[in-house]
Amino acid sequence: MDNSKCISKLDSNDWEKAWKDELGEEIKKKKFWTKDTPKINFEKIAIKDEYHDKLIEKLILDENDTVLDLGCGEGAVTTLVAEKVSEVVGLDSSDMMLDLLQQRIDHGNIENIQTKKMKIEDATVDTVGKFDIVLASRSFMGIHDIKNVLINSNEISKKYVFLAVFGRRNWRIEKKFYEKIGKDYPDFAPHDYIFNMLINLGIYPNIEHFDLEGNRKYDDLDDAFIRMKWKNENLTEDEIDKIKPFLKENLTLNKEDGMLENTLDKSDLVLIWWSKDSYNW
């Protein structure tokens, strides 16, 4: 891909403003999970799928590498990366997600993963140190201070930065729900903004699309309710109560594996990555 043909006339500050405008006002989001939510087992929420396999195939990893996984979540990617490298630090701001990751670590007797509770925005060389690889798997959505996060990610990395972000063909079933209740689904394609911000910062990244074929699948309605991206901070309690009846109408049983699915429910993901040796920055 010839990145020079994609350079925008906007500078990085303009792209950052456009990103923030798309996200809207920064607010503290409501959570489906609270301190009173029963403890969830990691095997319930973190399902390995074709994305995880294809991501690992694309990453450039060495057995001696150290990796910082920004926004590690429940650790589905973190644990796979740990099989390939010397050490991984999974960073996340959610106690729930870090608990699920710790369950994975304990279950697999994994010795080379450390967890760190911290917002992605607060990860700098001063707060976390240097790593060979910085990885962020689908974790940059909702971050307002995105330009500084990109700068910090680049500074933390000694070898490569890998960012897996969403394209435009996502959340179709969620959008269908919003359409049914008469609302616009608040989404955008972050790879457009991130790519152009990087270009204006003097970083010329590689862009690769994941060729994902399968639908997202769910154990049951509760599983789908938890794992889908409902943007619930934009919904009233009455509207949230309509989600499960909507899922019952729109998910069908796959007779081969017994999982619920919908043919609209596919992921569109893009990998943005660069080598620290490929430019002077």
Rank of each mutant, 00 (worst) to 15 (best):
K54G: 03
T79L: 11
M96S: 04
V88S: 00
K176Y: 08
N154V: 05
K183E: 11
G108I: 07
R172S: 04
F42Y: 15
E25S: 14
N206I: 01
G202R: 02
I56N: 00
N215S: 08
K276D: 14
L269V: 13
S157H: 07
E179W: 04
G90W: 00
E155C: 11
Y178R: 12
A46T: 01
N154F: 08
D95Y: 05
E233S: 13
V67E: 01
T66S: 12
V125R: 14
K117Y: 05
G214R: 05
E261I: 01
F195T: 12
F166A: 06
S8L: 10
N280D: 14
L70T: 02
K35E: 14
K158W: 09
A76N: 03
G108E: 08
K266H: 02
G71S: 03
I243D: 08
L251K: 03
E16K: 13
L253I: 11
K35V: 13
H52G: 01
P205C: 06
K130S: 15
E233H: 14
I40K: 08
K48F: 03
N250I: 01
Y204R: 13
G108V: 07
H52K: 06
N170T: 08
K176C: 07
V128W: 10
K266I: 04
K175Q: 15
R138Y: 07
G214Q: 06
R104C: 00
D69N: 11
W274H: 13
K17S: 15
V89Q: 03
D268M: 02
A164G: 12
L264E: 01
K31W: 09
M228G: 07
V81L: 00
V149Q: 04
L264S: 00
T66V: 02
S94F: 01
H144A: 12
K229I: 06
A224F: 14
P205L: 06
I40N: 02
D69W: 03
S93L: 02
D106W: 04
T124W: 13
L251F: 09
D2E: 13
Y160K: 14
N206C: 03
K276I: 15
V67P: 01
F166K: 01
G90E: 03
K119C: 04
V165L: 08
A46P: 01
P38F: 05
I272E: 00
S139P: 07
I27R: 11
V270W: 00
M118I: 10
E26F: 07
K17L: 15
F246K: 05
E213F: 01
R172M: 09
T263V: 07
E233I: 09
Y178P: 11
D95C: 01
I113W: 05
I60V: 07
F210D: 09
I194D: 00
L264Q: 00
K84L: 02
G73H: 09
N232L: 15
E208P: 10
P205R: 05
D211S: 06
L100H: 11
I133D: 07
W281L: 12
D192G: 06
Q114S: 14
E256Y: 05
S86E: 11
Q103M: 07
K30P: 04
G182A: 12
L55K: 00
M228Y: 10
F162R: 02
R227F: 09
L61N: 10
E213D: 02
V161S: 07
L135P: 10
I110Q: 06
H209R: 12
D211H: 06
K29I: 08
